[in-house]
């Protein structure tokens, strides 16, 4: 039996590529299924946004952006991103240094904590700030005494956005720092470099692409956050509406062209994010193969790479 199998196998093996490929019809079928699935779930909705946005022509499309309410929503969104992204960038780097460069007790618990906002429903992310800063929340009475407005104002929106987007930079940089280890930094220190100098000259260049990608992603999430922001915003027109909330508002005012026009702005942002991501991935790959060919081949066995990819996927997952 065994001999028969090998004999038959030996005959069939001749061109080795053939046996590990499917027949053409199967290939076409699978490719077709994949494309159909992506088409129905991804491309059609995407095209629909632009189709609806341009339904009344380019003029109506552009007019949607000159509306003062749209402008103030864009301004607020930029402001929120301008605070949340640098804050999370700083935190991400600090946390990545901590997790990537030291071994300490409770490290995995810390990583889980950093991941936590990704797994929390956005509605809950908003709710916790209502429970904290709401008039009847833990701090509400105290804040009301001094007329400090946190929720239903920009600070609340910024906080909710920070909460939701805060793992992105950290989760992007941590795996890379872990993989790269501390040898280069230790060498720099032993040569007399200071801590800050070492970080700036040695660590930062090594993680710059991952860092950039983390920032891009964090930014896209910060600008597009809906659920959490919706709970804490108060929906004051021209004041506490971010772009996604403005889309909802327009949608509810029968102003569909404008709603989809403003939505197309966010779609464009998403597409730019994806394009940048592709570029960054490509850059980091070439950078790695140029400068660290040995390291990559020798010290990154397959299981590490898979684990790292899984982490990639995980950090992308963000409840909006």
């Amino acid at each position: 039996m065994f001999r028969a199998l090998t004999a038959r196998g030996a005959l069939a093996t001749a061109p080795s590529r053939v046996v590990t490929r499917e027949r053409a019809p199967v290939r076409w079928l699978l490719t077709g299924a994949a494309l159909a699935f992506l088409g129905v779930f991804l491309l059609v909705p995407l095209v629909a946004v632009f189709a609806e946005a341009f339904r009344k022509g380019v003029g109506a499309y552009l007019a949607s952006f000159t509306d003062p309410l749209a402008l103030s929503a864009i301004k607020l969104t930029l402001l929120v991103a301008a605070i949340a992204v640098p804050a999370n960038l700083t935190f991400g780097l600090v946390a990545a240094w901590l997790v990537g460069k030291y071994e300490f007790k409770g490290k995995s618990a810390l990583i889980t904590l950093i991941d936590l906002p990704l797994a929390v429903s956005p509605v809950i992310s908003g709710l916790i700030f209502v429970l904290l800063f709401g008039l009847h929340g833990a701090l509400g009475g105290w804040l009301a005494q001094y007329n400090i407005q946190i929720i239903f104002a920009a600070p609340g929106i910024v906080l909710a956005t920070m909460f939701v987007t805060f793992p992105y930079v950290a989760r992007e940089v941590i795996p890379l720092m872990q993989e790269q280890g501390c040898e280069e930094e230790e060498a720099a220190i032993s040569l007399g470099a200071g801590g800050w100098q070492t970080f700036r000259r040695v660590t930062l260049p090594n993680v710059k692409w991952a860092l950039l990608y983390g920032v891009i992603l964090c930014n896209a999430r910060a600008m597009g956050e809906f659920g959490a922001v919706s709970v804490v915003s108060g929906h004051i027109r021209g004041k506490t509406n971010t772009i996604p909330l403005h889309v909802e508002l327009l949608y509810n005012e029968y102003n569909f062209v404008a709603a989809f026009a403003v939505a197309s702005l966010l779609v464009t942002l998403a597409l730019v994010t994806l394009a940048l991501k592709t570029v960054v991935e490509w850059k980091s790959r070439t950078a790695q193969t140029e400068f660290l060919p040995d390291l990559h081949n020798r010290e990154t066995p397959d299981e590490d790479r898979t684990a790292e990819h899984l982490q990639d996927v995980w950090q992308l997952q963000g409840a909006q």
Binding site: W142, N147, I148, Q149, P155
Partner: peptide, 29 residues
């Protein structure tokens, strides 16, 4: 609960108020 953890809470509020006061929250008053 409020009484027990006031220092932490005020620290948090201070943190948020300080870091964010420039962004319009108190502007309207």
């Amino acid at each position: 609960h409020l009484a027990r953890s006031t220092p932490i809470h005020s620290a948090l509020a201070l943190f948020s108020a300080c870091s964010l006061s420039g962004c319009g929250g108190v502007e309207r008053e």
